[in-house]
Amino acid sequence: MKRVIDRLKTYARKLKQELFVLYLSYKDDRTPWYAKAVAICVVAYAFSPDLIPDFIPVLGYLDDLILLPLGITLALKLIPSQVKEENRQKAEELKKEGKRKNWLVGIFFIFIWIFLVVWIGKLTINVFSSVQPSFVPYL
């Protein structure tokens, strides 16, 4: 069972890398318009919320396990091989570069969330502290 899970993880990493290749190929002028159309649809679908939520048994993972790989495969077949190979190299470079930047971006977003929580907390406290009770409870 562990071997199957390891294979699926490897396959998922490869698919993620291919999404970057599709995105880079979409931006490449040598890619035909129809390949660009399919590529951008697949990339948008991959990064959009699921059409079928994952909590629905079997059907929930259908899009992740079948539709997305089929879309990626179709889009890659439509892109010229030279463009794919060049963009695979670019994607690999971006992957190496991105690992360093991910920490900085992550820290930046953590600070933004902390700031928002503190700000909303202060607003909430100010609103509730300025509200005077409009009734006198009977004892």
Rank of each mutant, 00 (worst) to 15 (best):
F109L: 13
W113Y: 11
F115S: 13
V127N: 09
R7C: 11
R100C: 02
D28G: 08
G71L: 04
F109M: 13
P69V: 04
Y23W: 11
L67Y: 04
I114K: 08
K9I: 05
E97C: 01
Q82H: 05
E86I: 08
I72A: 06
V118M: 14
Y11C: 12
K14Q: 11
L70W: 10
F111Y: 06
L70F: 07
K77E: 03
G71F: 05
T124K: 12
L62T: 06
W33Y: 11
P49N: 09
L8C: 08
F135Y: 12
V58S: 12
V83R: 01
D64F: 03
W119F: 11
L78C: 02
L24S: 00
P80M: 03
S25K: 02
V43P: 02
I120V: 12
Y34K: 13
E85K: 12
L19N: 06
W33I: 13
V38L: 15
M1K: 12
S130Y: 08
L51Q: 12
D63C: 04
F55K: 14
S130K: 14
S130D: 14
P53G: 09
P32W: 01
Y11P: 08
L65K: 07
K77Y: 08
I79H: 00
F108V: 03
K122E: 10
L62N: 05
A39Y: 01
Y34F: 11
V131F: 15
E85G: 00
I114D: 04
R100T: 07
K9Q: 10
I112R: 04
E86F: 08
Y45C: 08
L59Q: 03
Y26D: 00
W103P: 02
G121Q: 06
E97P: 00
V21R: 01
W103L: 13
D6I: 06
G98Y: 04
W113D: 13
L51A: 14
L139I: 05
L22Y: 00
R30K: 15
K95M: 09
A12W: 03
F135C: 07
S130G: 15
N126H: 11
Y45H: 13
L59Y: 07
R7D: 14
A75N: 01
K95T: 05
N87A: 03
L104C: 01
G106T: 04
K27D: 13
E92T: 06
Y61E: 11
K99H: 08
K16I: 04
V21P: 00
S130W: 06
I66S: 03
P32F: 00
P69M: 07
L24I: 01
N126A: 14
L51S: 15
G121L: 04
V42N: 01
K77C: 02
F111Q: 02
W113H: 09
W33R: 14
I56S: 10
I110G: 05
G60K: 09
L62R: 03
